[in-house]
Write a protein that binds this DNA or RNA. Structure first.
Lengths: 122, 122
DNA sequence: ACTACATATAACCAATTAGTTATGGAACCA
DNA sequence: TGGTTCCATAACTAATTGGTTATATGTAGT
């Protein structure tokens, strides 16, 4: 049994890998407007139902969806929490893409990092 | 020649795939504290230099790093812009992970989405 | 009991990935 | 000139991925 208050560390490998496929991103977008059955999810895609079931399994494994079991349908519902983990990791780099950092071309970068003890870690 | 003002569409496939590997994320974190040569990057890892060169190629292809050429070194520097594209895509789902959306268990979700015309797309 | 439906699973396949070792080539040092 | 350092490339391999078709399973309808 897990200790009370246990929080599983975000599996960024699985989350980013799940997000790396356009079909899976489309599925997530679809689920943002409500849960859907496998066939409903599969309809827009030119691909077999088992292929979609596989994508759903990848998404579920990454914690990005949940499956229900009602009658013979197994609807999927969005679980966006792991996306927050992904964004949290990316946010550590915000400095580097905002405020036209590229123009400074790494000048401030060196200075700034010389006086911060910490760093960007996983 | 490209038209003036042309903006290449973000290749989310390549960006997310590049981020899906822990070695590559560690490399990006390393580069956040300044550019580094291939050997400097490779040092902390228990893996051959060619393996690291491959990772760098993946990161470069995703637009996440740039390579210089000075003397015989080929230092890599962080280019974080594609991370902003990734975050932008993820931000569309912020509603679903913030404000304890999970507790509501999809109740508000259905209502809210019934009255918004648009949706979350790629 | 038979049929249709919704989904999962198995077996297979081609392409990609992440690593390896071996080698090549350019730049520096003596 | 010869050796060393830095890096890239080639060739190979094992594992993973994303798809297929065929089949199995559970549920519902008649």
């Amino acid at each position: 049994m897990e200790p009370v208050g246990y929080i599983k560390p975000p599996d960024l490998d699985a989350v980013f890998a799940a997000l790396a496929d356009p079909t899976r991103r489309a599925i997530l977008s679809r689920l943002a407007s409500g849960e859907a059955s496998v066939n409903e999810i599969a309809a827009p895609f030119e691909m077999s139902q088992p292929a979609v079931s596989k994508h759903l399994k990848v998404l579920e494994h990454a914690g990005l969806i949940e499956r229900d079991t009602e009658k013979q349908r197994r609807p999927a519902r969005l679980k966006a929490a792991p996306m927050a983990d992904a964004v949290n990791w990316l946010e550590e780099f915000r400095t580097f893409w905002s405020s036209s950092f590229d123009q400074l071309d790494g000048l401030l970068e060196a200075i700034q990092n010389a006086e911060t003890k910490g760093g960007v870690n996983e």
